[in-house]
């Protein structure tokens, strides 16, 4: 596996000021994430994991420290440059899917390409979006609107959208938060497949079950890293899905 770090955090700080009170959301996080890793960032609410996520996702800038994404110091970039980083280097997946309603799955997946600095002709946008949808197993649903899709399917559309610009990292914020357990496992299966193909994935979650599908677990508390260890033993989506189905049959759920 390639050992080049795609994300380098050096003594990262984020301090919010709300009125007189200073809130230290992240206080001195240093870590490297290498290409091809599959990382879970865990922590209870208020642990600073969402703030971390926003900074890694170039939605927010740290107030102190250094964040190198693919060798570029994101902390020094202006708004437009951050937008370019988000467009080209990061693929976002959200808890609430965040698809544009009344827009087809295909158009949702095409959207990031509209904001590419390279002009992508409509024909190529269609082809790329269709390819990304096939990759997540939704090729036949490209003409459907989000409200015609199940939660799991919507999240697959969101994953396709995140993948379409071939980002350096996939960034998932509680991707299974709105899904039932079976669909959650299916989505984690998609992640594992993508990771096996060499895609770096960073995922925020508060569920240990979900984190077990990753390769490395980082736990935050009060804005600091308290645990950073490989996941052992690691769950495999197909195995877990088999177990779940067996359990469901046992109680005659189906």
């Amino acid at each position: 596996m390639n050992s080049k770090p795609v994300i380098q955090l050096r003594d990262l700080y984020k301090t919010y000021r709300s009125g007189e009170v200073e809130v230290h959301a992240v206080r001195g996080v240093s870590l490297d994430i290498l290409k091809g890793e599959f990382v879970a960032i865990m922590g209870s609410s208020g642990s600073g994991k969402s703030t971390m996520m926003n900074m890694i996702g170039a939605l927010d800038r740290p107030t102190g420290g250094q964040y190198l994404l693919d060798g570029v110091d994101v902390a020094t970039l202006n708004r437009d440059a951050l937008a370019k980083v988000r467009n080209e280097k990061i693929g976002f997946i959200f808890q609430g899917f965040n698809l544009l309603s009344r827009t087809t799955a295909l158009e949702n997946v095409e959207m990031p390409m509209l904001y590419n600095s390279r002009r992508i002709p409509a024909q190529e946008r269609h082809v790329q979006a269709a390819k990304a949808l096939n990759l997540v197993g939704l090729g036949s649903r490209s003409g459907h609107h989000p409200n015609q899709l199940s939660g799991g399917q919507q999240q697959r559309v969101a994953i396709a959208r995140a993948l379409v610009n071939q980002p350096t990292i996939l960034l998932a914020d509680e991707p299974t938060g709105n899904l039932d357990s079976q669909t959650s496992i299916e989505i984690m299966g998609v992640f594992q497949t993508l990771n096996d193909q060499g895609i770096t994935i960073v995922m925020v979650t508060h569920e240990l079950d979900v984190a077990r599908f990753t390769k490395r677990m980082i736990v935050l508390r009060d804005g600091r890293v308290v645990t950073d260890e490989p996941v052992q033993p690691r769950s495999q989506a197909d195995v877990e899905l088999g177990k779940l189905k067996a359990a469901q049959e046992a109680v005659q759920l189906h």
Binding site: L59, D80, A83, N87, N98, L100, L114, Y115
Partner: peptide
């Protein structure tokens, strides 16, 4: 929210 989504996937202020 739509604006937020667009910005998250790379829309600049000008877009």
């Amino acid at each position: 929210r739509e604006i937020g989504i667009r910005m998250a996937v790379g829309a600049r202020a000008a877009d």
